[in-house]
């Protein structure tokens, strides 16, 4: 199959799994809105008004990272419970095209939440066109990173029962514990580097730079205080996650 046919296949998967899936079970939307909107609500109620943009940016990143959970659940479900992954990859379709189609579907599920948060962001704080583009770039990176991780994990489950504890552990450490919904400045200066063990911290700090929110410095690793260092870090990690997923995802049962 030529690469053009593969691209068409990716878009078809995104169409029937993503768009039609969303259109026919809109409950996905509610689920996706719920967590980031409730965090935003807490920040709105508890924090000073000036902290609100943090919450909004956090909501954007959280929604992107959530594609990883979605990817992990959906791919594991389609492989283990429906056996459809087997049906689809036992064909001229490349496995990578299947993964891309699934990842794009996750993005489709997330787009409504992203549109909402981006709109709110524009309402609460001025954002230049360049910053907006930078945010979109961040969204793509965060999506690729977490979708790769989600897919990789999905290939190791043997039953659906194993999914939720792993999902909780991995995605809580990715999106709730690190400074996604709160500023890095809240972490004592000497321990800020620890937050960078989670790739999401790179994304949240870059988002803060892009939107012009106050950014905390990382005294022990100065490299992590500059936007350039953060870009290198995030792009590097994204490439690494994609590479690891492509290399180690389990396509054949052992």
């Amino acid at each position: 199959m030529s690469w053009r046919t593969q691209v068409r296949a990716v878009l078809r998967i995104c169409w029937f799994n993503g768009f039609l899936g969303l259109a026919r079970s809109p409950l996905v939307l509610v689920a996706l809105f719920l967590t980031p909107v409730s965090f935003l609500f807490f920040i709105y109620v508890l924090a000073p008004r000036s902290e609100l943009p943090f919450g909004v940016v956090g909501g954007i990143l959280f929604s992107c990272l959530f594609t990883g959970t979605g990817m992990m659940n959906d791919c594991a479900y389609l492989r283990l419970e429906r056996q459809l992954q087997q049906v689809f990859i036992s064909s001229p379709l490349r496995p990578i095209s299947w993964v891309l189609g699934m990842a794009l579907s996750q993005l489709v599920f997330t787009v409504p939440a992203l549109v909402l948060f981006l709109t709110v962001l524009l309402l609460v704080t001025p954002v230049s066109a360049l910053s907006f583009l930078a945010l979109l770039g961040l969204i793509v990176l965060a999506w690729l990173l977490s979708a790769s991780l989600g897919f990789l994990l999905s290939t190791f489950f043997r039953t659906l029962r194993e999914i939720w504890p792993i999902g909780m552990i991995v995605f809580t450490s990715l999106s709730v514990i690190p400074p996604v919904f709160y500023p890095l400045a809240a972490v004592p200066a000497d321990f800020r580097w620890v937050a960078f063990l989670a790739p999401s911290t790179f994304a949240s700090q870059l988002a803060a730079h892009a939107v012009g929110l106050p950014v905390a410095s990382v005294p022990s690793v100065p490299f992590l205080s500059s936007p350039a260092g953060l870009v290198v870090g995030l792009v590097g990690l994204t490439v690494l996650f994609i590479g690891v997923a492509m290399r180690f995802a389990r396509w054949r049962e052992p």
Binding site: M1, W15, L20, Q86, V87
Partner: peptide, 26 residues
């Protein structure tokens, strides 16, 4: 392949299953 105890997508119709699968196969 028809895997033992495979199941179709919940939300798609029989027509969509067949047609989309053929398109995805090229």
């Amino acid at each position: 392949i028809v895997p033992q105890e495979g199941k179709p997508f919940y939300h798609l119709t029989p027509r969509e299953h067949v047609e989309e699968y053929l398109l995805v196969r090229g």
